[in-house]
């Protein structure tokens, strides 16, 4: 309740006081961007996980793809794709979807090693994801496990934005229409054949840029217009 009123930065300071983990301390040190800042001035990280399933308690992360957006440009230089090694065997279905095989996974690093890197990148930024529940859920679970604390970050969710836009227009929509692929199609964006964490993160970032342009052609929107 208080968090809702006082904002993410307040919550961040509270958490900073509580936490004992050095990684977490470093992550929380940097203030989050001001809600009133222009969206074009905000640094955003588009993030996508490929996972073995949707339940953070049971399933695990297979790969992490991310790319940074600054000045409303997607900076591919900053893009990264990290395979995560896991002890369990991949269920057949996710092999089909992600075209990642166990063999490839062997090249990955452990999630315990990957998470500090990820937090370093996310520190002081805004997180962008399509349907943030997955990404947030997994990071949150990992943070609890490794550092014994909550994870907190300002989030922009393209799925949420799409839903809100439909609702504002008073237009009924099917759940199917909220899928990344279909939303991109509605913005005349190319369909990417490859389905991996990085391409999805890029695809989400592109969709987000389109949404920003649609909402404010003059690029004068504020961060608060987009936050979930």
């Amino acid at each position: 309740m208080l968090t809702a009123l006082l904002g993410k930065n307040y919550a961040r300071r509270q958490l900073l006081k509580k936490t004992t983990s050095a990684v977490m301390k470093e992550y929380l040190q940097k203030p989050f961007p001001n809600k009133k800042d222009l969206i074009s001035d905000i640094e955003i990280v588009s993030l996508d996980f490929e996972t073995t399933g949707l339940n953070p308690e049971k399933d695990s992360i297979v790969s992490i793809g991310l790319v940074k957006i600054s000045k409303l440009g997607i900076n591919l230089q900053s893009s990264s794709h990290q395979l995560i090694s896991t002890n369990e065997n991949l269920p057949e279905t996710s092999v089909v979807i992600h075209q990642i095989t166990d063999n490839q996974l062997a090249n990955g690093i452990n999630i315990d090693a990957a998470l500090p890197n990820l937090l370093k990148i996310l520190s002081g930024k805004v997180l962008l994801a399509h349907n943030m529940k997955t990404e947030l859920g997994f990071i949150n679970k990992m943070c609890h496990k490794l550092y014994g604390t909550d994870f907190i970050i300002p989030v922009i969710d393209t799925q949420f934005l799409a839903k809100r836009s439909f609702e504002r227009q008073g237009r009924p929509y099917k759940n199917n229409e909220l899928r990344l692929f279909n939303l991109r199609q509605s913005f005349n964006m190319p369909a990417y054949k490859a389905h991996n964490a990085l391409m999805d993160a890029i695809a989400t970032a592109e969709l987000f840029l389109a949404m920003v342009q649609k909402m404010s052609p003059e690029n004068n929107a504020r961060l608060s217009d987009f936050l979930s």
């Binding site: 409303l72 440009g73 997607i74 900076n75 591919l76 230089q77 893009s79 890029i202 970032a205 592109e206 840029l209 389109a210 920003v212 342009q213 649609k214 052609p217």
Partner: peptide, 13 residues
């Protein structure tokens, strides 16, 4: 690819 930046321009911009 790593050297590129992606931008999106809305119709009319």
């Amino acid at each position: 690819p790593k050297k590129l930046t992606i931008r999106y321009f809305r119709q009319g911009s």
